[in-house]
Simulated scan of single mutants.
Amino acid sequence: MDLTAGKKVSCHTIRCHSPGWRRCGIHIVAVLCTACTLLFASEASAQCTARDVLQNQLRLKKAPSADRPQIPIKSAVEVQVWKKITIGTLANLFALSNALDAAGCGIGNSAGEILARPSFTLRRAKANVELFAVSAAELGFQTDTASLADIYARAKKLGFGLAAAEVGPQLRLQYFDQPIGEFLIIGMEPIRTWKGAPVILNVANGGAGLILIGQDGSPDAQISMASRFVFVRTNEAAPAETQEAVARIDR
């Protein structure tokens, strides 16, 4: 009896009476056990499913960062690092897609489309990136909403920089303990869909599982003051404008 992904898996020997099949019981046991392993392997490795999200929430009791006081910041220098991730760990789009699938992470239609665009690139070599999560209110906006262009301009003035697009899926793969109800907009240059619509990425936990979705990346797109963005500092190793170390994905 084995326990895989929270489920009991039994492997039984089938008795054989024919002399020519003396070892068939051993062979059948091996086949059945292999089938059981393959059946539950993907479930065991999943980290983004609703069940995993609920288990993490109950275990960590982590509250969304939006619940914290929204105090305007004066400079990016005074903001503590929110999270460190590693980029450049995946060779191409296929490896990225397989990693997201293996973790059970949901991918929205527009997010999936821009991940397949030639303008979405992956870094050649591994690099550690420090990320900073700030809301529009913390950037100093006092209205109910602000345009994406104004938010980016204010962030740049305070010393933040836009992240490489790769940060979106990599953060999804390295942030399995995201609290329920948290939606993090990746501060990045928009990537256009096949129809030309500009899209930016959002790493989210809506309660039904961990997902990576896309949203309107137009300069005049209105963003709620409470919405939180993920930026890098302007001197970080992976700003979006640094393209020398970035390679196009082979397709």
Rank of each mutant, 00 (worst) to 15 (best):
V9F: 11
S10N: 12
T13S: 14
G20N: 12
R22W: 05
R23E: 09
C33G: 13
C36A: 15
L38Y: 08
S42N: 15
E43T: 11
R51F: 09
Q55H: 10
Q57M: 00
K61C: 05
K62E: 07
K62W: 00
S65E: 09
I71Y: 08
A76M: 09
Q80M: 06
T89Y: 03
L90A: 04
S97Y: 06
G104A: 00
I114V: 10
L122D: 02
A125K: 11
K126F: 01
K126P: 03
V129C: 06
L131G: 09
S135F: 05
G140H: 08
T143Y: 05
A146Y: 07
D150V: 06
K157G: 09
L158G: 08
F160N: 05
F160K: 04
P169A: 03
Q170M: 14
L171C: 06
R172M: 03
E182P: 02
F183Y: 07
F183H: 06
I186D: 02
M188Q: 15
T193E: 02
T193F: 02
G196N: 04
G209F: 00
G209V: 04
G209R: 04
L210D: 01
I213H: 08
D216Y: 05
G217R: 05
A221R: 14
Q222L: 15
S224T: 02
V230Y: 00
R233N: 08
E236W: 06
A237S: 15
A240T: 07
R248E: 08
I249N: 13
